[in-house]
């Protein structure tokens, strides 16, 4: 499995993602420059990551400009052909702006940037990045965003629920999905989702910040491990 990490000029979690994928997970990773369109090296079973940051400054609305970048044309095509696309934080915002994922990410309900550890609970193992997550346990994974309040109309939310597309809820450390555990006012505490075809994932929390012993938190690693083993099954 090969990874491509897209570098927008304002990406700032690109190096962190490359570090975890290559140094921690031992995977092949290349950076993909936003002005390039050619990602023909990547095929089904490979994964394109849209990392966190402020793609083009995000003064307008997070991800609003990034959707028009040359690389995103190719990423959309790649996703539509079944390749894995994983957007984290700003990447999630961009995926919603491009329409690869439903819903939008609004300004946090306290109107502030929030950076802190949150806890996440997955309701399903039915997606590559959550395949091996223990559904009874809360994962401690940090957030860092000003616009992370997931919002969609009722019909879309119902569709996400019916299709098992919700991958993460914010919860407390005991795994209870409560209002207090919701850091930004997201609808139903939603922290991450996938598309109906289950090959495009978006999440606000940063698993790459929780994948190393030296940082005192390795809860995020299970997402990478899940993706790698699922891909192995697919390819095998």
């Amino acid at each position: 499995m090969k990874f491509g990490v897209v570098v927008f000029p304002g990406s700032n979690c690109d190096d962190d993602m490359v570090h975890v994928l290559s140094e921690v997970m031992g995977q092949e990773v290349v950076k993909l420059w936003h002005k390039d369109e050619d990602i023909s090296d990547f095929g089904k079973g490979d994964c394109i990551v849209l990392p966190g940051g402020f793609s083009y400054g995000d003064y307008l609305r997070a991800g609003a400009i990034a959707q028009f970048s040359p690389i995103m044309k190719s990423v959309v095509k790649f996703a539509n052909e079944g390749g894995f696309v994983w957007g984290i934080c700003n990447g999630f915002q961009i995926l919603c702006e491009t329409g690869l994922l439903p819903g939008v990410l609004l300004r946090n309900n306290n109107q502030k940037f929030i950076c802190k550890n949150t806890h996440l609970k997955s309701p399903t193992n039915n997606a590559a990045i959550v395949a091996h997550i223990n559904l009874d346990k809360a994962l401690k994974i940090p957030i860092a965003h000003a616009e992370g309040r997931f919002h969609a109309d009722e019909a879309t939310i119902k569709q996400l629920q019916d299709n098992d597309q919700i991958l993460f809820y914010y919860c407390d450390e005991n795994g209870e999905i409560t209002e207090e555990a919701n850091p930004n006012g997201s609808t139903l505490n939603i922290a991450g989702i996938c598309n109906a075809e289950r090959n495009v994932f978006g999440m606000m929390p940063h698993p790459e910040r929780a994948s190393e012993d030296i940082l005192g938190n390795t809860d995020g690693r299970i997402l990478f491990e899940s993706l790698l083993s699922t891909s192995k099954v697919m390819m095998g």
Binding site: D16, H19, R209, I214
Partner: peptide, 18 residues
């Protein structure tokens, strides 16, 4: 104050969890 700052980007902040 500090929760309004990204204190973890670049994944080097050892003191975050300790």
């Amino acid at each position: 104050i500090y929760e309004q700052y990204d204190s973890m980007v670049r994944t080097n902040s050892i003191h975050t969890n300790e």
